[in-house]
Structure formats: C-alpha cells, structure tokens
Amino acid sequence: MHSQRFDRRHALAGFSAFAGLALLSSRANGAVKLSASPALLPTGAGRSLVLVQLSGGNDGLDTVVPYADDVYQRARPTLGRKKAETLPLDDYRGLHPALVRLRKHFDAGTLAIVEGAGYPDPIRSHFESMDVWHTADHRGRDAGEGWIGKLCDAAFKDDRNPNLVVHIGANVPYSLSSSSHPPASFINPQAYRWAGSAAATEAYEKAGGMDGHEEGKPKKLAGEKSIDYLRRVLADGQSSSAEVRHAVARYTTSVAYPNDALAQALHDVAALIDSDTGTRVLSVELGGFDTHTDERPPAI
C-alpha cells in the first residue's frame, strides 16, 4: 500500500484533497460536506486501499480534545481535559493521552484527522448514525448501497473479480454493500472452504453455483428468487475461497505479527496485497471503542 506523505501543516488538508473532502478550518465545528470521488480508489496496478474500521460509540471530543475551546470547557466541567492532560497537536486541540503512537504518525505526516463528522439534525440513534456514516448520506440505507460500494461501481465498473473487495472479519460493514462489487468475506482464510472429496466438490460446484452462473452480483435484486441469489453468492465463494487460501498459504513474511485478531487480519491483508487475487479494497474491523459510563474513572 502506498502511504502518501503529508507534512504536519497539511495533514488535515492533505487527506481532504485526496478524498475529495472539503478543508477543515482550524476551529472547525461547522457543517462540512462530504463528497467522495472515485479518485479515492486506487485503480493503478499494485495499489490497494486498506480500511480499518474501529467500531463503537466513541466520544470524539475525548479522542481529539479541543482543550482551548471555552464552550468545551464550560460544557465539561468534570470530563473536560486541560492542555496538560492531552498530547497537544496545536494551540487548540490535543490527542487523548493514550494515543502516543498515533501522535507519532501525526508528527510524521501520515495521520489525517477529520473532525466534527456528523449529519444535520441527528436523532442520536446509534444505528441511524452508523448507516449515515456507511452510506455517507443522511438518508442512510434508504440512499442505497454503501459509500465504498458506490465508489467501486465508479472505479472498477465491469470488473467482476469476486476478490476485488475483501472483508476479513465476522460482520461486513454496510459501507461495502454493493450489488455489482460485493465483498468476499471470511474470518479465517484457512477455514474458508467447503470440505468434501474431489467428486463431491465437483458436484457441489455444479449444483451450487460456479457452473454457468454469473459471478459478481450477490446482493439480492428486487424480485429475484432467493435461490438465484444464493447461487450467485455460492459461485463467488467457491472461486474466491480457493484463491484466498492459495494466497495466504503461499505468503511468507519476516514480520512477526502479534497474536491478536486485528494483527492476524492484517497479516491476511498483506498476503492478499502480495498475491495475484487482484484485491483492491481490503477491510478489517476492530470493535470495543464504545465510550460508556466509565469514560473517566474517578481519581484514586
């Protein structure tokens, strides 16, 4: 994966231009319009987009803290942080003190921060918010497919490779939802297969899907029979799984990946990028970022 280098001053603006986002002002809390462009997706050979979704209802104002904001300090007489309790980024905002390593990336110009993401007149439903986020549209799922899915339509057009978009993890985020470029997904690449004898596998492919069914549209279309939908997903699964298992089995690396779920998923991401599966968008998810009543444990 390419990591575009930003200098610190342009870190915020840099990502914005890259993603087609409007530039944030230094005291940004106003409405900023998001508009994704297919240019975001890497269409050139050998380039991939890796998405890491950190899931949970996170308190953004305690992650990137606007410590110099009077309104913030007045609204948070107990929860609020003073400058000294943050890792200052500039004279207005600082990172939560636990984010030491992200701070290093910020200083190196490889971290961009988008503040104040939201939508007009929020109803504060967790699920509506996720849908708005995943579709980049205030109508949520009523607006159709996910924002990555829509970008794939524009960037990859008729490329029907079932491994073009891959999610590694249990739940596929709605952002990847697409009828033309649906993601392949798995938890463990080694278990990503149907186990049976060679003869049974041949029959499975004939009966199930791979034989004579069109690949690449496994989102149920209006009026479509469920059986036809299942056949198309199965066809994708049958061809995708063999390639993924190949890619991961063949991949060798000198990097010692830690033994946790995110690191193992990123190992598979690296394996796919290093392979000839043609995967361009890779998605992983790490949960547990909910902020709850224990946000700031009382001082001992």
Partner: peptide, 18 residues
Amino acid sequence: GEAWITTSSLLARGNMAG
C-alpha cells in the same frame, strides 16, 4: 435475511452439516 449469507458462511454451513 441476506445478512446471514457471506461468501464464507455459506461454505461453512455445508461444513457444519458435514
């Protein structure tokens, strides 16, 4: 509904039946 079905969960269902 459809969300139960992914490219891998469909194969895994067959494995569980096996």
